[in-house]
Nucleic acid binder design. Structure first.
Lengths: 344, 344
DNA sequence: TGTTAGCACTCTCTCTTAATGAGTGCTAAT
DNA sequence: ATTAGCACTCATTAAGAGAGAGTGCTAACA
């Protein structure tokens, strides 16, 4: 069957109406609200066609139509037009980024708040990809006579640390020497390309303090571990309650529990490497539990190098047009901000 | 009116039944389940008395009774008996603490998980009180030619950091010198007793780099700021959904939003300084929004010095007996663990 | 041939009503 | 002082009746 201009118009009208109301859309509504100059009866015929083609669904015989995931996909790919942010929104965002900050984590956290505030959906933002971050300083600081703290400072100002037990009789000098070696080995190296081999070699040649070196290797491994979940920032988790389809307490709980699984969210977002905005609709989701949701992601970069991802999770009847614009804008704004901050 | 032995027995039976079922309790139930050898009619008379005294309430004329906050208070103060944790539970907890860790934050986080898991309520745990933590090391590390990272390492292994801009032409040597001064000034000082005066004095005598010193003072202030909310760990926020009285989506949302206000939670827990376990029931809560909840807190210490607080938030019909025991146990266990870790 | 008015039909949602049942308070007997 | 008996209250549930929204089909129309 052909997918003529008029069918597209009707599909668009149905989708947009359903997105705003959440109620199945009938032929009369389309004829009245989005008057294209044809009668409800004609629209009914077209709707039957669209359903047959898989773009619409009918909850039950005597109800209006709702878009299918396939319908949304068509809508996103062909019918949507970019929407500008309002001046208020743009200013609101800029104001927040204009404030100086001493912690990059705070910037990321703010980003998740802004996103969830503006879109009214749930926002997930990943911190800078650790694999492409540079080590600027490593140091072992004695805390008491039993523990030292290993600190790894990166060029984004993020500190990774770990406590390690130190053998008796080991003094500050010794720790300083080790620190110097570590700096010599790793400074200005990518976190992703750090090799522990030289350290392991050293350990194997040692007679004393092997235990200590083991801890050290472990601690460094842990510190540079890229899959760390602490770098997932959430915003607006309770926004989901605003939508009638999630008034059901069970569904809501399921969703919230999902959002607590940081590893899953991490994987979900880390996957999308393509620059720019990408949209995943309902069934297209890899993750079983998210088949009822749509996800829109965007990446941000520093100096043109992709550093992280941000995402919006909402019901499939999401305001795609608006949300895509917001994500696009935010990706660019955050990239600019960070690039300016770390311009070298 | 007298509060005789029998009235107490009946009150106890009603409260315990209501805690487990969540349904108003009738006279027949008491007679059958908790047979004290008297008839429902007699129990009804006693119940009427207890209501008059303010220990019970009636949702509507033809319903059973439910305990009032005052009733719970009496129950907690006079009727409860300590309950031992099951061996399984005790082992479960010990197992978790037996694992070595490199981050004290992780221990605190684990604690909140354990608490919420075992009790099935929402757990809040505050990290070590920063005011009684010692500074072990301060350092300025250059990140690039525009920024340095200020790091404050404490004896609990917690690192506070902040990025500060550095003036052009300032070299590593200069930063090292400043670091030395900072260490000289602050090492082994309590975070709570740190004074910025010497630093401000220094700044005022300077001609160059005043701007830089300003940033430095700000950054240190921020780093040692005790009221920092990042130290609030939550566990089991969605547990509230398990209780029929919070099936209402609005109430649930309200609760979750409350739990996102870390400052409020911080204040709530930081208030309870008394050692050991303390119970706050419904209306007794200072905080308006928590009038429907009960809160049980316990403190933990290092070497006998109170360092932090943990709390459980649940419905007023909470399993007080069980929960109080758990809190008592956990407070002691965590204290032991930390004391062993930082024994000097 | 495409469009439209008319109409019977379907299904959900809401409102009403009646029945059920748990629980009480009071009275009178033990 | 305790208890059996009983009338009364109130929430909850189920069933039934409309109302209303929307459809698909048919036949008439341009």
């Amino acid at each position: 069957m052909e997918l003529g201009e008029r069918k597209l118009q009707i599909l668009q009208a149905i989708i947009e109406d359903y997105i705003t109301t959440g109620e199945p859309v009938g032929s009369r509504t389309i004829a009245k609200k989005y008057g294209i100059g044809i009668s409800p009866a004609t629209i009914r015929n077209e709707m039957a066609d669209l359903e047959e083609m898989g773009y619409l669904e009918q909850p039950h015989t005597s109800a209006g139509r709702i878009p299918s995931d396939r319908g949304y996909r068509l809508y996103v790919d062909r019918l949507i037009k970019a929407e500008r942010l309002s001046i208020n929104e743009a200013n609101y965002i800029k104001d927040i980024y204009d404030k100086k900050t001493r912690h990059i984590e705070q910037v990321i956290f703010q980003t998740s708040k802004i996103l969830s505030d503006i879109t009214n959906y749930t926002a997930v933002v990943l911190g800078p990809k650790l694999s492409s971050v540079l080590v600027k300083h490593i140091q072992l600081v004695p805390i008491d006579n039993r523990f030292a703290l290993l600190m790894v400072v990166t060029n984004t100002g993020i500190v990774r640390d770990a406590m390690i037990p130190i053998p008796q009789g080991v003094g500050v000098d010794y720790l300083t020497r080790i620190s110097n070696i570590l700096n010599y080995l790793y400074r200005d190296k990518n976190l992703g390309e750090i090799s522990l081999d030289p350290l392991i070699e050293m350990r194997d040649e040692m007679i004393q303090n092997r235990e200590f070196f083991n801890s050290l290797v472990d601690a460094i491994t842990e510190s540079i571990d890229i899959g760390d979940i602490s770098e997932v920032y959430l915003g607006g988790t309770t926004n989901i309650f605003n939508y009638p389809e999630y008034q059901d307490i069970l569904k809501a709980k399921e969703f919230l529990n999902l959002m607590e699984q940081k590893e899953l969210l991490y994987k979900l977002l880390a996957r999308s490497h393509d620059k720019g905005v990408s949209v995943t609709i309902g069934e297209e989701n890899q993750c079983e539990e998210l088949r009822d949701f749509s996800i829109i992601t965007a990446t941000y970069n520093i100096n043109g190098k992709t550093m992280g991802t941000m995402g919006i999770i909402g019901p499939t009847r999401m305001e795609y047009s608006k949300t895509i614009s917001v994500m696009d804008f935010m990706g660019k704004t955050l990239s600019n901000y960070l690039t300016r901050l770390f311009k070298s």
